[in-house]
């Protein structure tokens, strides 16, 4: 068997671009999904049944679907139903954001719920308003619980961006698979793809562990 590892070096520009797209997609998705998750969590905790029920339905729905199907669905069905004509990147962004927002909503809700009722009540007895109690007492405590979970969601998201390759978003996985198809250097390109993901993801996983040690397991 002869392998030609130089293909990787020769494809460095395309791979770099793909990597940047992966990072960009992750960052933008997370930004949208933090806002989306926050909104969904507040809806879920609201007193209005209609709001909390629709938030619950949204969250349960997207948490119980394979992301790759949501990606296909966003690509083939969404334009038909809505008339929007989005490019592949935006379509991938929509699918990822729907998915991650649902997960973040649960994270935020659990974070807020985990703060004992007594804490909020203690703040109210000090004469704080509900908003003040939320802002000064409940949220700061919730953040400590939420940050580690968000960090591991980030890692999942970073890996999940590879799934939008199926609709032709030219992120790292797609670029690698394309070069493989054109050059027939299958083993080399697939190994390179795995290695690049590993090189990017491994330190992030270690960072998440560190964040967990730092913030996790307090009380």
């Amino acid at each position: 068997m002869n392998f030609e590892w130089s293909i990787i070096w020769r494809s460095r520009e395309a791979l770099l671009e793909g990597t940047l797209t992966t990072v960009l997609l992750s960052v933008v998705t997370m930004t949208i999904a933090i806002a989306g998750g926050m909104l969904l969590a507040l809806m879920r905790l609201s007193r209005w049944r209609a709001l909390s029920a629709s938030s619950a339905a949204f969250v349960e729905f997207f948490r119980n679907l394979p992301l790759i199907l949501v990606v296909y669905w966003a690509f083939y069905v969404l334009p038909e139903l809505t008339g929007w004509q989005l490019d592949a990147f935006s379509t991938g962004l929509v699918a990822l954001s729907l998915n991650v927002s649902a997960y973040n909503a649960e994270t935020f809700r659990a974070g807020i719920m985990s703060i004992r009722k007594g804490q909020g009540e203690a703040a109210l007895t000090l004469g704080m308003s509900e908003v003040q109690a939320m802002w000064h007492v409940v949220l700061p405590q919730a953040v400590r619980r939420v940050v580690p979970v968000l960090a591991s969601t980030w890692i999942s998201l970073f890996k999940d961006t590879s799934l939008v390759s199926v609709i032709g978003v030219s992120e790292l996985a797609h670029v690698s698979l394309e070069i493989r198809a054109q050059s027939f250097r299958v083993l080399e390109m697939l190994t390179a793809m795995a290695a690049i993901y590993w090189a990017l993801g491994y330190p992030q996983a270690k960072l998440v562990d560190w964040i967990n040690r730092r913030y996790g397991h307090t009380e």
């Binding site: 697939l190 993901y197 993801g201």
Partner: peptide
């Protein structure tokens, strides 16, 4: 374990199906 936390499942699948037999 940490490597698997870093590499997407798609990548493992594709590698296992296409690259592993070559190797």
């Amino acid at each position: 374990v940490d490597s698997m936390r870093a590499i997407p499942v798609l990548v493992v699948l594709v590698w296992m199906y296409f690259a592993f037999p070559l190797l």
